[in-house]
Design a protein around this nucleic acid. Structure first.
Lengths: 139, 139
DNA sequence: GATTGCAAGTTTAGCGGTAAACTCTACTGA
DNA sequence: TCAGTAGAGTTTACCGCTAAACTTGCAATC
């Protein structure tokens, strides 16, 4: 039995899976003219109505500059509104934003379920456990 | 014991891990003024000297338009050369490109090893197996 | 109350990526 | 032969993202 680490192949495979699932998401969300980034905003703001731009940036692991641009486009499309409060902007979904979220989120979740159905339930648990370890080891 | 699928949390965790490891790679490669995309080109072209732009695009799962722009910048930095042959361009690393590859690749691999060290060897095998299943189920 | 300073947001240059239109070259077939 | 076509590469417009410089508003301290 080999003692060499398989970290590299595991990482390369993880990247591959990420890219492919991401592409599938892009395809799915295209029917609502949504990018993955915009979809993520819709999901997060829907979960925590009234969050600030900085909070959103922290959740998404992106810069506040990026969030600002994303919100510009989404506000223009009337999917959400900024509401100034002190020196922060609180974000709220419009009705159009909410109904888009209610359509797209279940579809996206079904896509993920379908893809992961190729992995048996017990293996999914182990997968999740390993990923959690990796995540926590990166702070 | 619950029977509900954990596909969604597993996917969200996978995304998180990808983002964090990717950020760590960006930090590491910054010391050679390399982006992850440029590093990937260096690795692939080093593995298969003389490959065409289209072959490279297929390997990296990106468009040929993207490869064209990446190569523009890297050729300008004299890390590689295009050599026209019929209607295709064959790509070769320069000496500068090769030596950069020889420096950066082991460092990158050590980074991955270090991160994955938090997962026991047996668990890494299971992780790899699950990821392979996912990959293959996406064609 | 004026000064200082920090925190939230905005702007801009530049890279990475896609899609689509375009050029150029080679091959194929009537 | 030569018209058509398909494949490889290039270009362009636009989105996602970062880093860094910039603006603005609030608070604390003197």
């Amino acid at each position: 039995m080999s003692t060499r680490s398989i970290a590299i192949p595991a990482w390369l495979r993880l990247v591959r899976v990420f890219q492919k699932v991401d592409h599938a998401s892009v395809e799915l969300l295209r029917q609502w003219d949504l990018s993955v980034a915009q979809f993520d905003v819709l999901v997060q703001v829907g979960n925590t109505e009234g969050m600030t731009q900085q909070q959103l940036a922290d959740r998404l692991l992106v810069t506040k500059g990026n969030v600002c641009q994303l919100l510009d486009r989404m506000e223009q499309r009337q999917l959400l509104v900024r509401q100034q409060e002190g020196r922060a902007n609180r974000i709220y979904l419009t009705e159009a934003g909410k109904s888009l979220r209610v359509e797209a989120l279940p579809a996206q979740e079904q896509l993920i379920e379908r893809i992961f159905a190729s992995v048996p339930r017990a293996e999914q648990s182990a997968l999740l456990a390993s990923l959690r370890r990796l995540d926590h080891s990166l702070e």
